[in-house]
Design a protein around this nucleic acid. Structure first.
Lengths: 100, 100
DNA sequence: TATATATTTGCCAATACTTGACAAGTCAAT
DNA sequence: ATTGACTTGTCAAGTATTGGCAAATATATA
């Protein structure tokens, strides 16, 4: 499992019977780039997620969650303290929410 | 709370009655850089954490956890799906652990 | 086998991001 | 007003990431 986001968007694209060549233009990139994104070798830009969700008729929030999870994973993979660090980060997130 | 890591190492440094000028050389940087790190404007390099832990007589794992938490926070702050994304990332971490 | 289409891979220039280094600045104590 | 600690701003240099293209591979089909 290289990239949860990549795996997901590939599955969605195939379910829609779309070729890379049909999806890539919406994201203003070539098939090579999109291929790499699906394989987790490159990152889609955050702001492109809504566009892709539409093309693939997917839930924006679900894709965004997977995309974020990939970013987090890149930071903490191989770290034995990964879980603890996420707990600390989450605590801060929730503190800030309350402040609003 | 700009940076949990920065706040912590500043507190530790002050507890030890050390000046920036006394700590910075161990990290091979000037006081300006260390000042920015303490204020969360720059990142300490991951591999420098053990060095700093020693100088400040701090627990390496605790500092590393805070450092990682800051990195994660940078990714997910302002994201309403932050918590969900961390859960997804954590699940993958634990899967990989089992595979070992 | 040859052709066509889809995807993947490798490369590298272009772009974007981060850091290192220094100078000038503020602040507090004397 | 001087000193020492810390902060801030700037910008060149260093890193990392991306975009774009060409070639390679894979799969299907005549």
């Amino acid at each position: 499992m290289e990239s949860q986001f990549g795996d997901k968007i590939r599955a969605l694209r195939e379910k829609q019977h779309l070729y890379l060549r049909q999806v890539a233009p919406f994201l203003e990139m070539d098939t090579a780039q999109l291929s790499k994104i699906e394989k987790g070798l490159r990152q889609l830009k955050r702001e492109q997620i809504p566009i892709l969700s539409e093309v693939l008729k997917a839930d924006k929030d679900e894709l965004l969650t997977l995309w974020l999870a990939d970013q987090i994973y890149a930071v903490v993979k191989d770290e034995k303290l990964a879980t603890e660090a996420m707990q600390v980060a989450d605590k801060k997130i929730n503190l800030n929410k309350r402040k609003k």
